[in-house]
Design a protein around this nucleic acid. Structure first.
Length: 138
DNA sequence: GCCAACGTTGGC
DNA sequence: GCCAACGTTGGC
């Protein structure tokens, strides 16, 4: 089965892409939203994810990949939620801002734009290519 | 700092 | 099981 693509949000003040590069990998825990948890559960080893900075920056700044598939979130006592582990792949040559994404017709259907509160969302192959193109790749 | 969106909780 | 109140997220 083909790899899936994702987008994850993080507040850079709490955990930025640079922090991920420094650490080599990180446990993506603390997700307390059912829809986001469903996406976490469907992530496969090697799936790549856009790394988006919320609150500050408001841009996709890099690419991360799944290095451990879903397991019970160690910070969740209820046992309902899961975590995964991400490792950095590479930063984008140029950040892609939320403004740019909103202004790009090909991205109008993006899950993240339509439901901005989702902290984990799927990215279609077309959206993936489009965003990497905007970021100076491809 | 404000407020819209939206998920969750709890009273009934 | 409905729905109002409340809490959280995140753009602006």
């Amino acid at each position: 089965m083909a790899q899936n693509h994702w987008l994850v949000k993080s507040e850079p003040a709490k955990y930025s892409f640079d922090d991920l590069v420094r650490d080599g990998k990180t446990v993506w825990d603390g997700v307390r939203n059912n829809q986001a948890a469903i996406y976490l559960r469907s992530m496969k080893l090697g799936d790549q994810s856009l790394y988006y900075h919320s609150q500050e920056g408001l841009a996709v700044v890099g690419i991360a990949k799944v290095v451990r598939e879903a397991f019970p979130d160690p910070t969740d006592a209820s046992g309902r939620f899961v975590a995964v582990e991400f490792a950095p792949v590479r930063p984008l040559p140029r950040p892609v801002t939320l403004t740019e994404m909103k202004a790009t017709p090909a991205l109008a259907g993006m899950a993240m734009l339509r439901q901005f509160r989702l902290s984990v969302s799927p990215i279609t192959p077309d959206e993936w290519r489009t965003i990497l193109g905007l970021g100076g790749e491809g």
